[in-house]
Amino acid sequence: MYKSIIIGTGPAGLTAAIYLARANLNPLVIEGQPGGQLTLTTEVENFPGFIDGIMGPDLMDNMRKQAERFGAKFIRGWVTETDLSKRPFMLTVDGVGRLETESLILSTGASANLLGGVPGEKDYIGRGVSTCATCDGFFFRNKEVLVVGGGDSAMEEANFLTKFASKVTVVHRRAELRASKIMQSKAQQNKKISWALRNEPTEVIAGDRGVTGLRVRNVDTGAEEIIKTDGIFIATGHTPNTSFLNGQIRTDHTGYIEVVPGTTETNIPGVFACGDVQDSRYRQAITAAGSGGMAAIDCEKFLESVH
């Protein structure tokens, strides 16, 4: 029986672990993908306290060691079943077995939707391929970049990138964009944005120093060409990692966990959510870490109230 279990080891989960461990609650942290999305990032320059930046994996490793220093315990595995119908909550972890806990913090994040089946796409994440303009746009100052996607997130990323890049080209396989009219209009009026519509990405082209181009196929003619670029931003949305909950936690229509405004409380007392799994708007390491601290404080107060 654990007082608290945290699922997820990104900035939110690890911050929650630090806070709970310092409160002598000896949390158990379940690692799926150690370090979360930040392990896919090279240099992080917008996390406070690191004047010269820090590598994403190093930042996560530091946070993990800090949590361990105060007594947090870690196990590796994927949660395959949950029973949140009564306390203690029951979890089944692949390769570990069944666990019981008085409280639960969900910090499983949201995975960027990749194109899928495009050679080089995964291989060059952090080396010219990115899923976050806010995180990586600064590295492409005065360079030419591509944004792949046709929804609101793609238009938002394209407009944001024009603050840094000399040219932004939007690649989309359809002639029509899925983005709202206002977002389309804003992008179309931006002189730094050009368009490569009716083109489907087929391969990321790269050299020793990273991405150099994107091979695309014209959906009308079948003709292929390589669009030269310094960076490729994939903006096809995110999917919150909540499927293992089997609908026991209330979510919005896109799958993000709903919390009581101003807290990390879910619809089930004793279950809390923090980080990107409940944040479809900001999705930043620092906001995730902040909500992790909130979840730990909410969790600690809950445990005090039931004992």
Rank of each mutant, 00 (worst) to 15 (best):
R64V: 05
L91Q: 08
H238M: 10
A289F: 08
S111I: 13
I51E: 14
N113M: 10
A196R: 13
D123G: 01
T101V: 12
S166T: 14
T134K: 03
M294A: 13
L146I: 11
V204T: 09
E300M: 05
E265M: 11
I297F: 14
S85H: 06
V168N: 08
L91M: 09
N159I: 13
H253G: 00
L20C: 07
N113V: 03
E176L: 12
A196F: 00
G128K: 02
F50Q: 04
M60Q: 06
V145E: 02
G35N: 05
T236N: 10
I182E: 14
Q37P: 01
I30G: 03
M90V: 14
F70A: 10
G210S: 06
P48V: 04
S111K: 09
R174I: 00
Q37V: 12
V96Y: 09
T162G: 08
N24E: 15
V29A: 03
T80G: 03
T266R: 01
K192L: 07
T80F: 00
E31K: 12
S103Y: 12
M155Q: 03
R209C: 02
T41R: 05
L84M: 04
S103C: 06
N46G: 10
D52T: 13
E68L: 01
E304I: 14
G77D: 05
G222P: 13
M294T: 04
N113R: 15
I51A: 15
K65T: 07
E144P: 01
S103D: 11
K301R: 15
A133Y: 07
E203N: 10
R127S: 13
S130R: 05
V118P: 02
E68G: 10
T212K: 15
G32C: 04
L214A: 10
K122G: 00
N267V: 07
A288Y: 03
W195N: 05
I182N: 12
V260R: 12
S153I: 11
I257F: 02
G255L: 07
T229A: 08
P57L: 06
R76Q: 14
S107G: 11
A296C: 05
S107Q: 07
G49I: 11
V44G: 04
I297C: 09
A235H: 02
P48Q: 03
L303P: 09
G207S: 13
N190S: 09
D94S: 15
V219H: 05
A112F: 01
G126W: 11
F50R: 04
G213A: 10
V29G: 08
L20P: 01
C132L: 09
V129T: 06
G126R: 13
T287M: 13
G270C: 10
F139R: 07
R87D: 02
N246A: 15
T39S: 05
